[in-house]
Design a protein around this nucleic acid. Structure first.
Lengths: 189, 189
DNA sequence: CTGTAGACGCAAGGATTTTGCTTTAAGGTG
DNA sequence: CACCTTAAAGCAAAATCCTTGCGTCTACAG
């Protein structure tokens, strides 16, 4: 979230933020992301443009906030019985969601309008959180587990790098191969 | 490069492109990247704003082109005698250049104004090219070498991911550790 | 040398962004 | 509960930026 968010959580402020976010999401599907403008969003949200400019600075930052919201995982990853199956399934789903044109758009938006890097950090935190669920679950089963940072380096980072820099030739098989490259135990660091 | 570049390589077109790019670079250091506007760049370049809008579309795309130019490696990586030293040195330098505020800015710009993804692809191609120099050099020495894609997954991707999503806590030691995680031989794929 | 077409300059028109001032309402205080 | 304080929103004018049509120039081809 940008520096301007979350002040006066209850009341008008919150209502304005909600209606602006809703307006962005609706218009994204109706007119497409490239046709969005601040005045357009303001009109749909029933708000004056200057309100948006004052709170978010510009369209990029607003889109960044909305993108982070949409990138938040809404469900805990399913249990497949063992860590490597869990990781493989999670990686495939991650790739599916993130590599789609929509997903790529959100990632780019999240990165773009992010002066202090907190929105990008939040995206990473979501992934870390999901992976931690898998890892603690595995540890509870008595499995040996790598640490989160290793999974980030070996799975999340390659997926993201390719999504952003080389969107071609990505498939579930690649995601599975990455998971196979994760060592079974914590790496010495 | 955008779709509008490199038409009529000689003559006026080329002069305009050069002076616009120069104007962007100069103004970036003088007034800072956030204060750049198309009219400002146009004035410095001795060109009318509409020329820039017609050729590049908007500021994002122009900045993206300039950023890719600046991300192009200008020198072949030095020879340290063996592959792992070469990779370690290259990774450290890569991190140095890319993780700085300036470097991050260029990467973000390159990603940002890139409708078709060709600029981002070019960034990745630069890294691949440099790594290939190291790998063929090692092969000429008779060393076993991993393939480029493995180095990209194990070294470049984690560095980039962290630069973009979690800029804190990056140091040369981390780059070296990544290089140690590269297998000595090609991975079966 | 001449023709052609792509690229630029200029200027008008429209849209967006910024900004000063006023008004509203959330949250605290007596 | 009434009052005070202040962050945030509304409003409107001004500044800035973006778009577009048209005329001109110049690189390249024949």
């Amino acid at each position: 979230m940008s520096r301007r968010q979350m002040v006066r959580p209850g009341g008008r402020s919150a209502r304005v933020q909600a209606s602006v976010h809703t307006a962005v999401r609706e218009l994204q599907t109706e007119v497409g992301r490239d046709a969005l403008t601040v005045p357009l969003v303001a009109q749909r949200a029933g708000v004056t443009p200057s309100t948006i400019y004052r709170r978010w600075g510009d369209l990029k930052e607003l889109l960044s906030d909305v993108a982070v919201e949409r990138l938040r995982p809404d469900t805990a990853p399913k249990d497949h019985g063992d860590l490597s199956s869990d990781l493989a399934a999670w990686a495939e789903q991650f790739l599916d969601e993130m590599a789609s044109p929509t997903g790529r758009g959100y990632i780019r938006d999240a990165l773009l309008g992010d002066p202090d890097g907190s929105n990008a950090g939040q995206c990473s935190a979501y992934a870390v959180q999901q992976i931690n669920v898998l890892l603690t679950r595995a540890a509870d089963r008595g499995e040996n587990t790598p640490d989160v940072e290793t999974v980030v380096d070996r799975v999340v980072a390659p997926l993201m790098y390719r999504i952003l820099f080389r969107p071609d030739g990505l498939d579930a098989e690649y995601a599975r191969r990455l998971v196979k490259g994760v060592p079974a135990r914590p790496t010495g660091r």
